[in-house]
Amino acid sequence: MPRRRHRTGWLRMGSLAAFTVVFVGFAIAAPGFLVVGNIANVVDQSAILGVLAFGMTVVIIGGGGDVITGGIDLSLAGNLGLSAAVFAVLSQSGSGDVLAVVAALASGVAVGFVNAFAVVRLRILPLLATLAVMNICAGVELVLTHNMVVQARSSLLSRLAGDGPFGLPVLAYLLLAIAFVLVLAVQCSPTGLRLYAVGGHREAARAAGLAVERHVGGSYLVSGLCGGIGGVFSAALLNGSTPGSGEMLLSIVVAALLGSVFSRRLVPTIAGTLLAVLFIGFLINGFQLINVSSYWVSGVEGVLILFVVGTTSLVRREMS
């Protein structure tokens, strides 16, 4: 028992140490890294990835952490593209911001509903169900946009892409606000606790009288909503919708998996995911500041996945 705690403790400390080393390393090597403006930039650039990774985290919490049979939402990146397209198309056709935002969020939740239905009612493996839904999203996005850039300009979008209090980007504030709300809902509420119970041991949770299906289904709806919010953010950042959102999928998976090494019991948490997202953001930013080719970043992301999945599964095997 003590050995196991020792191991997980080592992994967590190791990850935090790695985060610190990277941070301090860049602070020394890269001029301008520690400037408030640059840090705000990184938080701002992490907003879209962060919101999507939060959705992924909730799904993994509710569905269990097993990479093959557990909870996963591969449709998130596709959902982002679709929601951004819905927003942009409506906005371009003259609809107001309110309608466009409501429609984008509704389209996100609708995607979440399809996922929930496929996973809970049809009992399809989440990995396959959400993969199929990812394709549906990409298809509908193509129908809406004809694979073209759809331009959207509105006061809401320019406000979202602009600066807020203290001259810091609005999206950075929004990311932190959403993280705060989700930490309260997932980490500090009875519902959140039940979600962990369902994901941790489904049969035990069912025996204890928890509404397992409702929790699992609900996690996909939350994830879908996150996709919708990400879509609106993306429309703000890019002045509309552009093809190619699907590329984000790997980063979302990395962030959600990496997040679990920041928690005491190696479980996914919202705060851990936020740290992971910022870690990836600082890594990309630092590389550019010290003028290392951006080509290294995707390689580093791949190495991170291997490292995290490898070590956590090793430690988990010892725990069981």
């Binding site: 993306s234 590329e247 930013n285 550019q288």
Partner: peptide, 15 residues
């Protein structure tokens, strides 16, 4: 990737 280019431009400006 459009959003990656935007992020890179933001960082470039700060440099």
């Amino acid at each position: 990737n459009d959003s990656r280019q935007i992020a890179q431009i933001q960082t470039l400006i700060s440099q």
